[in-house]
Design a protein around this nucleic acid. Structure first.
Lengths: 193, 193
DNA sequence: TTTATTTCTTAATATAGATTAACAGCCAAT
DNA sequence: ATTGGCTGTTAATCTATATTAAGAAATAAA
Protein backbone atom coordinates (compact mmCIF):
# COMPACT_ATOMS: atom_id res chain seq x y z
CA UNK A 1 0.00 0.00 0.00
CA UNK A 2 1.67 3.12 -1.28
CA UNK A 3 1.74 6.21 0.83
CA UNK A 4 0.63 9.63 -0.34
CA UNK A 5 4.12 10.72 -1.36
CA UNK A 6 4.82 7.81 -3.67
CA UNK A 7 1.33 8.00 -5.07
CA UNK A 8 2.01 11.66 -5.84
CA UNK A 9 5.32 10.98 -7.54
CA UNK A 10 3.87 8.11 -9.55
CA UNK A 11 1.48 10.50 -11.23
CA UNK A 12 4.41 11.77 -13.28
CA UNK A 13 7.05 9.03 -13.29
CA UNK A 14 6.89 5.28 -12.58
CA UNK A 15 9.26 3.90 -10.00
CA UNK A 16 10.45 0.41 -9.15
CA UNK A 17 9.90 -0.73 -5.59
CA UNK A 18 13.65 -0.30 -4.88
CA UNK A 19 13.42 3.28 -6.06
CA UNK A 20 10.33 3.74 -3.90
CA UNK A 21 12.40 2.68 -0.91
CA UNK A 22 15.42 4.81 -1.71
CA UNK A 23 13.24 7.86 -2.11
CA UNK A 24 11.01 7.31 0.88
CA UNK A 25 14.00 6.72 3.15
CA UNK A 26 15.49 10.06 2.20
CA UNK A 27 12.62 11.85 3.91
CA UNK A 28 12.28 12.59 7.60
CA UNK A 29 8.90 12.60 9.24
CA UNK A 30 7.65 15.32 11.56
CA UNK A 31 4.53 16.61 13.24
CA UNK A 32 3.87 20.33 13.45
CA UNK A 33 1.52 21.95 15.94
CA UNK A 34 -1.15 24.38 14.78
CA UNK A 35 -0.30 28.08 15.20
CA UNK A 36 3.43 27.49 15.19
CA UNK A 37 5.83 29.04 12.71
CA UNK A 38 7.74 26.45 10.70
CA UNK A 39 9.93 28.84 8.69
CA UNK A 40 10.62 32.54 9.11
CA UNK A 41 12.72 35.04 7.15
CA UNK A 42 16.39 34.59 7.88
CA UNK A 43 16.13 30.85 8.61
CA UNK A 44 18.40 28.50 6.72
CA UNK A 45 15.41 26.59 5.36
CA UNK A 46 17.19 24.27 2.96
CA UNK A 47 14.39 21.75 2.83
CA UNK A 48 10.92 21.21 1.46
CA UNK A 49 7.85 19.82 3.14
CA UNK A 50 5.45 17.30 1.67
CA UNK A 51 2.14 17.52 3.53
CA UNK A 52 0.53 14.29 4.71
CA UNK A 53 -2.05 15.87 7.02
CA UNK A 54 -3.10 19.40 8.02
CA UNK A 55 -2.72 22.79 6.35
CA UNK A 56 0.16 25.25 6.04
CA UNK A 57 0.52 28.58 4.36
CA UNK A 58 3.45 30.64 3.10
CA UNK A 59 3.46 34.44 3.16
CA UNK A 60 5.39 37.68 3.63
CA UNK A 61 4.73 40.57 5.95
CA UNK A 62 5.30 44.01 4.47
CA UNK A 63 6.49 47.24 6.13
CA UNK A 64 2.96 48.06 7.28
CA UNK A 65 2.61 44.68 8.94
CA UNK A 66 0.22 43.43 6.28
CA UNK A 67 0.34 39.72 5.44
CA UNK A 68 0.45 38.63 1.81
CA UNK A 69 -0.23 34.94 1.31
CA UNK A 70 1.70 33.22 -1.44
CA UNK A 71 0.31 29.70 -1.06
CA UNK A 72 -1.67 27.20 0.95
CA UNK A 73 -0.58 23.60 1.30
CA UNK A 74 -2.96 20.74 2.01
CA UNK A 75 -2.28 16.98 1.97
CA UNK A 76 -0.49 15.96 -1.21
CA UNK A 77 1.11 19.38 -1.71
CA UNK A 78 4.64 20.67 -1.33
CA UNK A 79 5.66 23.80 0.60
CA UNK A 80 9.01 25.40 1.04
CA UNK A 81 10.71 28.71 1.03
CA UNK A 82 11.76 28.01 -2.55
CA UNK A 83 14.35 30.76 -2.47
CA UNK A 84 16.15 29.31 0.52
CA UNK A 85 15.64 25.73 -0.61
CA UNK A 86 17.02 26.33 -4.07
CA UNK A 87 19.76 28.88 -3.48
CA UNK A 88 20.92 27.79 -0.02
CA UNK A 89 20.51 31.36 1.23
CA UNK A 90 18.39 32.52 4.19
CA UNK A 91 14.61 32.30 3.83
CA UNK A 92 12.51 35.24 2.71
CA UNK A 93 9.08 33.84 3.61
CA UNK A 94 7.10 32.79 6.61
CA UNK A 95 5.58 29.32 6.58
CA UNK A 96 3.16 28.58 9.38
CA UNK A 97 0.86 25.84 10.50
CA UNK A 98 -2.88 26.47 10.22
CA UNK A 99 -3.94 23.01 11.38
CA UNK A 100 -1.87 20.28 13.09
CA UNK A 101 0.30 18.72 10.40
CA UNK A 102 2.16 15.58 9.59
CA UNK A 103 4.83 16.30 7.04
CA UNK A 104 7.69 14.61 5.26
CA UNK A 105 10.87 16.65 5.08
CA UNK A 106 13.39 16.49 2.27
CA UNK A 107 16.70 18.29 2.73
CA UNK A 108 18.09 19.90 -0.37
CA UNK A 109 21.36 18.02 -0.03
CA UNK A 110 19.49 14.71 0.04
CA UNK A 111 17.39 15.77 -2.92
CA UNK A 112 20.51 16.47 -4.93
CA UNK A 113 22.02 13.13 -4.05
CA UNK A 114 18.76 11.42 -5.04
CA UNK A 115 18.63 13.22 -8.38
CA UNK A 116 21.81 11.45 -9.44
CA UNK A 117 20.85 8.16 -7.85
CA UNK A 118 17.31 8.12 -9.23
CA UNK A 119 17.13 10.34 -12.34
CA UNK A 120 13.39 9.78 -12.55
CA UNK A 121 13.04 11.80 -9.36
CA UNK A 122 14.84 14.70 -10.98
CA UNK A 123 12.31 14.40 -13.78
CA UNK A 124 9.47 14.45 -11.28
CA UNK A 125 10.74 17.63 -9.66
CA UNK A 126 11.32 19.23 -13.02
CA UNK A 127 7.71 18.59 -13.94
CA UNK A 128 6.46 19.72 -10.53
CA UNK A 129 8.42 22.95 -10.84
CA UNK A 130 7.23 23.48 -14.41
CA UNK A 131 3.60 23.18 -13.38
CA UNK A 132 4.16 25.49 -10.48
CA UNK A 133 5.80 28.02 -12.79
CA UNK A 134 2.85 28.03 -15.17
CA UNK A 135 0.45 28.61 -12.29
CA UNK A 136 2.56 31.48 -10.99
CA UNK A 137 2.80 33.14 -14.39
CA UNK A 138 -0.94 33.01 -14.68
CA UNK A 139 -1.31 34.49 -11.24
CA UNK A 140 0.92 37.43 -12.18
CA UNK A 141 -1.20 38.12 -15.23
CA UNK A 142 -4.43 37.68 -13.28
CA UNK A 143 -3.33 40.25 -10.73
CA UNK A 144 -2.65 42.72 -13.54
CA UNK A 145 -5.60 42.01 -15.81
CA UNK A 146 -8.49 40.94 -13.58
CA UNK A 147 -10.59 42.69 -10.94
CA UNK A 148 -10.71 41.41 -7.37
CA UNK A 149 -14.10 39.88 -8.11
CA UNK A 150 -12.77 37.90 -11.05
CA UNK A 151 -9.77 36.72 -9.07
CA UNK A 152 -12.10 35.54 -6.35
CA UNK A 153 -14.18 33.55 -8.80
CA UNK A 154 -11.05 31.93 -10.20
CA UNK A 155 -10.01 31.05 -6.69
CA UNK A 156 -13.35 29.42 -6.01
CA UNK A 157 -13.02 27.28 -9.12
CA UNK A 158 -9.42 26.35 -8.49
CA UNK A 159 -9.58 25.53 -4.77
CA UNK A 160 -13.23 24.60 -4.04
CA UNK A 161 -12.15 22.07 -1.41
CA UNK A 162 -10.15 24.29 0.95
CA UNK A 163 -12.50 27.29 1.04
CA UNK A 164 -14.48 25.93 3.95
CA UNK A 165 -11.55 25.35 6.26
CA UNK A 166 -10.11 28.79 5.60
CA UNK A 167 -10.90 32.05 7.42
CA UNK A 168 -12.05 34.36 4.65
CA UNK A 169 -9.49 36.98 5.45
CA UNK A 170 -6.91 34.46 4.23
CA UNK A 171 -8.68 34.24 0.90
CA UNK A 172 -8.64 38.03 0.76
CA UNK A 173 -4.92 38.06 1.41
CA UNK A 174 -4.29 35.41 -1.23
CA UNK A 175 -6.16 37.23 -3.97
CA UNK A 176 -4.61 40.52 -2.90
CA UNK A 177 -7.29 42.67 -1.20
CA UNK A 178 -8.07 43.76 2.36
CA UNK A 179 -10.54 41.71 4.42
CA UNK A 180 -12.88 44.72 4.62
CA UNK A 181 -13.00 45.14 0.87
CA UNK A 182 -13.39 41.40 0.43
CA UNK A 183 -16.38 41.36 2.74
CA UNK A 184 -18.04 44.18 0.83
CA UNK A 185 -17.27 42.56 -2.50
CA UNK A 186 -18.83 39.29 -1.42
CA UNK A 187 -22.07 40.93 -0.32
CA UNK A 188 -22.15 42.80 -3.64
CA UNK A 189 -21.82 39.50 -5.46
CA UNK A 190 -24.74 38.04 -3.50
CA UNK A 191 -26.92 41.05 -4.21
CA UNK A 192 -26.22 40.77 -7.95
CA UNK A 193 -27.41 37.17 -8.16
CA UNK B 1 34.61 28.61 -29.64
CA UNK B 2 31.33 27.95 -27.87
CA UNK B 3 28.18 29.65 -28.94
CA UNK B 4 25.87 31.55 -26.62
CA UNK B 5 23.57 28.57 -26.00
CA UNK B 6 26.26 26.17 -24.86
CA UNK B 7 27.89 28.89 -22.82
CA UNK B 8 24.55 29.43 -21.13
CA UNK B 9 24.01 25.76 -20.38
CA UNK B 10 27.55 25.33 -19.09
CA UNK B 11 26.83 27.83 -16.33
CA UNK B 12 24.83 25.12 -14.59
CA UNK B 13 26.08 21.77 -15.92
CA UNK B 14 29.29 20.75 -17.68
CA UNK B 15 28.97 18.93 -20.97
CA UNK B 16 31.35 16.82 -23.04
CA UNK B 17 31.89 17.96 -26.61
CA UNK B 18 29.74 15.05 -27.86
CA UNK B 19 26.91 16.22 -25.65
CA UNK B 20 27.46 19.74 -26.93
CA UNK B 21 26.90 18.45 -30.44
CA UNK B 22 23.85 16.34 -29.62
CA UNK B 23 22.22 19.27 -27.92
CA UNK B 24 23.11 21.92 -30.45
CA UNK B 25 21.85 19.76 -33.31
CA UNK B 26 18.45 19.41 -31.71
CA UNK B 27 17.82 23.12 -32.22
CA UNK B 28 16.62 24.81 -35.37
CA UNK B 29 17.77 28.28 -36.24
CA UNK B 30 15.50 31.09 -37.37
CA UNK B 31 15.41 34.82 -37.93
CA UNK B 32 12.38 36.85 -36.88
CA UNK B 33 11.52 40.28 -38.24
CA UNK B 34 10.78 43.17 -35.91
CA UNK B 35 7.08 43.91 -35.34
CA UNK B 36 5.96 40.43 -36.26
CA UNK B 37 4.03 38.16 -33.94
CA UNK B 38 5.84 34.91 -33.21
CA UNK B 39 3.17 33.28 -31.03
CA UNK B 40 -0.45 34.17 -30.44
CA UNK B 41 -3.17 32.67 -28.25
CA UNK B 42 -4.54 29.49 -29.78
CA UNK B 43 -1.29 28.56 -31.54
CA UNK B 44 0.14 25.12 -30.93
CA UNK B 45 3.38 26.60 -29.67
CA UNK B 46 5.12 23.45 -28.46
CA UNK B 47 8.59 24.94 -28.56
CA UNK B 48 10.83 27.36 -26.78
CA UNK B 49 13.09 30.05 -28.18
CA UNK B 50 16.63 30.77 -27.10
CA UNK B 51 17.52 34.32 -28.13
CA UNK B 52 20.85 34.88 -29.91
CA UNK B 53 20.15 38.43 -31.08
CA UNK B 54 17.33 40.97 -30.73
CA UNK B 55 14.49 41.40 -28.23
CA UNK B 56 11.14 39.70 -27.77
CA UNK B 57 8.37 40.12 -25.25
CA UNK B 58 5.53 37.93 -24.02
CA UNK B 59 2.17 39.36 -22.93
CA UNK B 60 -1.59 39.00 -22.76
CA UNK B 61 -4.29 41.38 -23.93
CA UNK B 62 -7.28 41.72 -21.62
CA UNK B 63 -10.94 42.38 -22.43
CA UNK B 64 -10.35 46.15 -22.56
CA UNK B 65 -7.53 45.70 -25.07
CA UNK B 66 -4.87 46.52 -22.49
CA UNK B 67 -1.52 44.78 -22.85
CA UNK B 68 0.09 43.15 -19.81
CA UNK B 69 3.72 42.23 -20.34
CA UNK B 70 4.91 39.05 -18.67
CA UNK B 71 8.53 39.08 -19.82
CA UNK B 72 11.22 40.49 -22.07
CA UNK B 73 13.83 38.29 -23.69
CA UNK B 74 17.25 39.53 -24.76
CA UNK B 75 20.26 37.52 -25.98
CA UNK B 76 20.98 34.62 -23.67
CA UNK B 77 17.36 34.34 -22.47
CA UNK B 78 14.62 31.83 -23.15
CA UNK B 79 11.05 32.68 -24.18
CA UNK B 80 8.08 30.48 -24.75
CA UNK B 81 4.44 30.22 -24.06
CA UNK B 82 5.27 27.96 -21.15
CA UNK B 83 1.71 26.76 -20.89
CA UNK B 84 1.61 25.52 -24.47
CA UNK B 85 5.19 24.29 -24.40
CA UNK B 86 4.73 22.25 -21.26
CA UNK B 87 1.17 20.99 -21.55
CA UNK B 88 0.94 20.59 -25.32
CA UNK B 89 -2.22 22.67 -25.34
CA UNK B 90 -2.89 25.85 -27.34
CA UNK B 91 -0.96 28.97 -26.36
CA UNK B 92 -2.41 31.59 -24.02
CA UNK B 93 0.15 34.35 -24.61
CA UNK B 94 1.36 36.60 -27.36
CA UNK B 95 5.08 36.62 -28.08
CA UNK B 96 6.24 39.32 -30.46
CA UNK B 97 9.45 40.65 -31.89
CA UNK B 98 10.59 44.07 -30.69
CA UNK B 99 13.87 44.08 -32.62
CA UNK B 100 15.03 41.76 -35.43
CA UNK B 101 15.96 38.46 -33.83
CA UNK B 102 18.06 35.40 -34.38
CA UNK B 103 16.74 32.56 -32.30
CA UNK B 104 17.31 28.88 -31.71
CA UNK B 105 14.16 26.79 -31.53
CA UNK B 106 13.74 23.68 -29.44
CA UNK B 107 10.62 21.57 -29.95
CA UNK B 108 9.20 20.03 -26.83
CA UNK B 109 9.34 16.56 -28.35
CA UNK B 110 13.05 16.99 -29.06
CA UNK B 111 13.62 18.33 -25.57
CA UNK B 112 12.01 15.27 -24.08
CA UNK B 113 14.10 12.95 -26.19
CA UNK B 114 17.24 14.87 -25.16
CA UNK B 115 16.37 14.65 -21.47
CA UNK B 116 16.71 10.89 -21.63
CA UNK B 117 19.73 10.97 -23.93
CA UNK B 118 21.58 13.66 -21.95
CA UNK B 119 20.30 13.71 -18.36
CA UNK B 120 22.48 16.71 -17.61
CA UNK B 121 20.25 18.73 -19.91
CA UNK B 122 17.23 17.75 -17.88
CA UNK B 123 19.14 19.00 -14.85
CA UNK B 124 19.86 22.27 -16.63
CA UNK B 125 16.21 22.84 -17.44
CA UNK B 126 15.20 21.91 -13.93
CA UNK B 127 17.53 24.58 -12.56
CA UNK B 128 16.43 27.11 -15.17
CA UNK B 129 12.79 26.49 -14.28
CA UNK B 130 13.53 26.66 -10.56
CA UNK B 131 15.19 30.05 -10.91
CA UNK B 132 12.36 31.29 -13.04
CA UNK B 133 9.87 30.09 -10.43
CA UNK B 134 11.61 31.97 -7.63
CA UNK B 135 11.59 35.16 -9.68
CA UNK B 136 7.90 34.78 -10.44
CA UNK B 137 7.01 34.14 -6.81
CA UNK B 138 8.82 37.30 -5.85
CA UNK B 139 7.02 39.21 -8.55
CA UNK B 140 3.63 38.07 -7.22
CA UNK B 141 4.55 39.26 -3.75
CA UNK B 142 5.97 42.53 -5.08
CA UNK B 143 2.75 43.28 -6.89
CA UNK B 144 0.83 42.75 -3.65
CA UNK B 145 3.20 44.39 -1.18
CA UNK B 146 4.98 47.21 -3.03
CA UNK B 147 3.87 50.50 -4.53
CA UNK B 148 4.33 51.20 -8.24
CA UNK B 149 7.33 53.36 -7.36
CA UNK B 150 9.03 50.56 -5.47
CA UNK B 151 8.35 48.09 -8.25
CA UNK B 152 9.89 50.52 -10.72
CA UNK B 153 13.03 50.87 -8.62
CA UNK B 154 13.34 47.09 -8.41
CA UNK B 155 12.97 46.90 -12.16
CA UNK B 156 15.75 49.44 -12.64
CA UNK B 157 18.07 47.41 -10.45
CA UNK B 158 17.18 44.10 -12.00
CA UNK B 159 17.24 45.03 -15.69
CA UNK B 160 19.52 48.11 -15.96
CA UNK B 161 20.76 47.03 -19.38
CA UNK B 162 17.49 46.83 -21.29
CA UNK B 163 15.87 50.02 -20.02
CA UNK B 164 17.36 52.13 -22.78
CA UNK B 165 16.15 50.01 -25.66
CA UNK B 166 12.62 49.87 -24.29
CA UNK B 167 9.77 52.34 -24.82
CA UNK B 168 8.80 53.36 -21.33
CA UNK B 169 5.19 52.35 -21.78
CA UNK B 170 6.50 48.79 -21.92
CA UNK B 171 8.11 49.22 -18.53
CA UNK B 172 4.81 50.58 -17.25
CA UNK B 173 3.02 47.53 -18.59
CA UNK B 174 5.57 45.17 -17.04
CA UNK B 175 5.33 46.65 -13.57
CA UNK B 176 1.56 46.85 -13.87
CA UNK B 177 0.55 50.52 -14.27
CA UNK B 178 -0.77 52.69 -17.09
CA UNK B 179 1.71 54.71 -19.18
CA UNK B 180 0.08 57.96 -17.98
CA UNK B 181 0.51 57.07 -14.34
CA UNK B 182 4.02 55.88 -15.00
CA UNK B 183 4.94 59.18 -16.58
CA UNK B 184 3.58 61.13 -13.62
CA UNK B 185 5.30 58.82 -11.16
CA UNK B 186 8.65 59.28 -12.88
CA UNK B 187 8.44 63.07 -12.76
CA UNK B 188 7.50 62.86 -9.08
CA UNK B 189 10.59 60.75 -8.47
CA UNK B 190 12.78 63.36 -10.16
CA UNK B 191 11.25 66.19 -8.17
CA UNK B 192 11.89 64.33 -4.89
CA UNK B 193 15.63 63.92 -5.56
C1' DT C 1 11.54 68.25 -45.62
C1' DT C 2 7.05 67.36 -44.65
C1' DT C 3 3.66 64.28 -43.03
C1' DA C 4 2.02 60.67 -40.36
C1' DT C 5 2.32 57.69 -36.47
C1' DT C 6 3.66 56.48 -32.23
C1' DT C 7 5.22 57.79 -27.69
C1' DC C 8 5.34 60.89 -23.79
C1' DT C 9 3.49 64.51 -20.78
C1' DT C 10 0.14 67.09 -18.26
C1' DA C 11 -4.15 67.85 -16.14
C1' DA C 12 -9.01 67.04 -14.81
C1' DT C 13 -11.98 63.70 -13.31
C1' DA C 14 -13.33 59.07 -11.85
C1' DT C 15 -12.94 54.63 -9.37
C1' DA C 16 -11.29 50.32 -7.30
C1' DG C 17 -9.73 49.29 -3.37
C1' DA C 18 -7.40 50.94 1.28
C1' DT C 19 -7.88 52.91 5.79
C1' DT C 20 -10.08 53.87 9.97
C1' DA C 21 -13.39 53.03 13.21
C1' DA C 22 -17.22 51.09 15.52
C1' DC C 23 -19.91 47.17 16.40
C1' DA C 24 -21.69 42.36 16.42
C1' DG C 25 -20.91 37.37 16.58
C1' DC C 26 -18.27 33.64 17.96
C1' DC C 27 -15.16 30.72 20.51
C1' DA C 28 -11.79 29.65 24.10
C1' DA C 29 -10.18 30.47 28.53
C1' DT C 30 -10.99 32.07 33.17
C1' DA D 1 -21.45 33.63 33.35
C1' DT D 2 -17.88 36.64 31.90
C1' DT D 3 -13.93 38.29 29.92
C1' DG D 4 -10.97 38.68 26.09
C1' DG D 5 -9.54 37.87 21.65
C1' DC D 6 -10.30 36.72 16.96
C1' DT D 7 -13.27 37.15 12.74
C1' DG D 8 -16.58 39.29 9.90
C1' DT D 9 -19.69 43.33 8.72
C1' DT D 10 -20.90 48.02 7.62
C1' DA D 11 -20.05 52.72 6.67
C1' DA D 12 -17.40 57.06 6.10
C1' DT D 13 -13.45 58.86 4.30
C1' DC D 14 -9.23 58.66 1.79
C1' DT D 15 -5.65 57.46 -1.76
C1' DA D 16 -3.20 55.18 -5.34
C1' DT D 17 -3.95 54.42 -9.68
C1' DA D 18 -7.16 54.44 -13.96
C1' DT D 19 -9.56 56.99 -17.51
C1' DT D 20 -10.25 60.52 -20.70
C1' DA D 21 -8.60 64.06 -23.35
C1' DA D 22 -5.53 67.10 -25.58
C1' DG D 23 -1.17 68.81 -26.80
C1' DA D 24 4.02 68.20 -27.29
C1' DA D 25 7.88 65.56 -28.62
C1' DA D 26 10.05 62.11 -30.93
C1' DT D 27 10.35 58.51 -34.78
C1' DA D 28 9.34 56.67 -38.83
C1' DA D 29 7.43 57.10 -43.38
C1' DA D 30 6.75 59.47 -47.63
Amino acid sequence: MKNLLLQNISKHVSLTSEEDDIIFNAFDKASLKAKTIAIKPGDEAHFTYFVLKGILRSYTIDDNGTIHILSFATPGWWVADMYSYLTGKPAVLYVDVMEDCDVLILQRSDAERLFTEVPKLERFFRILTENNLIANQQRILDKMALTAEERYEKFLQKYPDIINCLPQKYIASFIGVTPEFFSKMKSNLLRKK
